[in-house]
Design a protein around this nucleic acid. Structure first.
Lengths: 84, 84
DNA sequence: GCAGTAATTAGACATTCGTCGAAATAGTCC
DNA sequence: GGACTATTTCGACGAATGTCTAATTACTGC
């Protein structure tokens, strides 16, 4: 739960998640959409993976990142305790 | 939205919100439930108020904090974009 | 006004965070 | 093996964060 909130507490990381709604993307494709350096985006992707919000798989030179929304159920559950 | 995620990105602040589900509490009553100093809790309450997750009202010497869950609708909406 | 209490503000400190450029790793193709 | 490409790892840096103690503010009751 900590890793989840931590991952979501950054506008760039949230934008990455929103971008991945359109489908899996390689690290390079994701980095293109932002003005930050590739290492910075790589770091953000790492935090998202730590929170299990994305999965990654390597195909040749490219690493593809895929959105994983199942973790958001946990957040949804936590949230609903306040909306009875 | 930034202030909201920022406020939620701390276990103590989330615990304060959960405690306030039982009803409004004074700053002192809230502080009692944690092992941190009163100024620390006061700071957490300030961040929660900045995110509009709580409201505060002063009655004499005491400041009462009340949970405000309407802001969570915004989070819920953001979340549901991932659950079509 | 003075003493006492609830809460906040101020200042300090160590830790974490987001960012970068440079270097390293891993893979492809010749 | 060597050149090239995609990505990550490594250090470094300033900024933000969470915590504390001490001081301050705001209020009550004498």
């Amino acid at each position: 739960m900590n890793a989840l909130f931590k991952a979501l507490n950054d506008p760039t990381r949230r934008a990455i998640l929103e971008a991945l709604r359109a489908g899996p993307r390689t690290a390079g494709e994701i980095a293109e959409q932002f003005q930050f350096s590739k290492p910075t985006i790589s770091h953000h992707l790492d935090l998202l993976r730590q929170a299990d919000l994305v999965t990654s798989s390597k195909q040749g030179l490219f690493v593809t990142y895929t959105l994983n929304t199942t973790v958001l159920d946990e957040l949804l559950g936590w949230l609903l305790q306040f909306k009875p």
